[in-house]
Design a protein around this nucleic acid. Structure first.
Lengths: 219, 219
DNA sequence: GTATTGAATTAGACAAAACTAATTACTTAT
DNA sequence: ATAAGTAATTAGTTTTGTCTAATTCAATAC
């Protein structure tokens, strides 16, 4: 069963939305892909036909096991290529997304594995997102940067990207460690700093430099 | 002016055909792309409209300066990616073509340059074909392996891929050096060995291992 | 010089993936 | 309970790149 470029993008998008929303609505997909809702419903029907998702108005779109496998495969390739672009070709991490969007759709049986080996089997992409394993399993730990959370979302600290001593000292001072629960109380637009609550204690303000380096487990 | 995947493939194909045939006929393009002649004529009209080629029945398709620039850019990317796949990802040289066919269409301003630098600015791809320069110039020298010549074709030695001492000694013994003229007299199907005439001297039989490592300038 | 073959061309259709505009179905606020 | 707003859906189009089938044009064979 060959998947088209477009089908792969829909599956990937559904996967991503499902990680931050309880329901993957047609509207949400249309917004992310910047497609017309009418186009989206056509594609959802097609994916349903192929048994890659289930869909109805009330449940929204849900990936089947096959669908999730395809989505994770695309995400794996996307993130591996991002590592390649940053580590080997010296791109800046913020420049690579639109290139990886294209590279993720290259089809070849052996490519992801060979690329993975060449890169030394990295666990994270340059944005700190975890790279799914070749068996199609997304590591449960550390799947989102704190800086990406919206107000009122919460998660547990899964890992830390910056492992320099000053940073770790700072975390200790905040009483923050692996497993700490963080809730986002507020987010300041002008400098992206956040007000957070750590394990239910008094709210603290932290910079975007800090929130970029904390990886959370979201349930 | 963004080019589609398909447009790029047509331009590339026209370029390739023009190097081995005096006229790029509609039929020839249809055969290479395995497309219906009716589809081909539509696309030729479109490319003509965009001033990437000129076309009429008697002259066939001819790339404009712009068209040739696009074609060479695609070929450059194709060959750079082939080098990457073979040298970095350890693919066999015969496995990489269909992957490079996809990779050559990745669009990004800086990508070819960065990839080229990462690979150490290679002059040839794994098949011995020269890699066009970033200014869109195809090196004139050494554009075909001897093994790819047909019976009665001829060329001048432009470069040698295997630079090991035993191989160079063997060439000396054959009285063959840069600039020598080689004519193909016969080609044996069963082992791909060739009977060649070097600078007009007596015909000699050489193995496919030898003919794979000689790169010729074809006028 | 006419018949045959092959190449080029036209006309019309189709599939994929998008669109616009109109309609229906829910949800929520008053 | 109804009006207003948002989400989902339907119907009909469009664009890109392909196809088949029929036709015209050109070269060559006899």
């Amino acid at each position: 069963m060959k998947k088209t470029y477009s089908e792969e993008n829909y599956l990937k998008t559904i996967y991503h939305i499902s990680k931050s929303e309880s329901k993957v609505s047609l509207k949400a997909i249309a917004d992310v892909l910047e497609n017309n809702p009418a186009s989206v419903i056509d594609m959802l029907r097609k994916l349903k036909e192929k048994e890659l998702i289930t869909y109805d108005k009330t449940q929204g779109a849900i990936l089947t096991v096959t669908g999730e496998t395809v989505a994770l495969d695309i995400i794996r390739k996307h993130r591996l290529w991002e590592v390649f672009l940053v580590e080997k070709l010296n791109y800046d991490w913020h420049e690579v997304h639109h290139i990886a969007e294209q590279l993720e759709h290259i089809h070849d049986e052996q490519l992801a594995k060979k690329l993975d080996d060449f890169l030394g089997n990295p666990a994270f992409d340059p944005h700190g997102d975890p790279i799914p394993a070749s068996n199609g399993q997304m590591p449960v730990y550390a799947n989102k940067r704190l800086s990406e959370l919206k107000i009122n979302q919460a998660g547990k600290v899964g890992s830390v990207r910056d492992t320099s001593t000053p940073f770790l000292k700072y975390l200790k001072q905040l009483n923050l460690g692996l497993g700490s629960k963080i809730e986002v109380i507020d987010k300041l637009d002008f400098d992206q700093s956040m007000v957070i609550v750590i394990d239910g204690s008094a709210p603290k303000t932290v910079s975007s430099k800090m929130t970029d380096n904390i990886l959370l487990i979201i349930d």
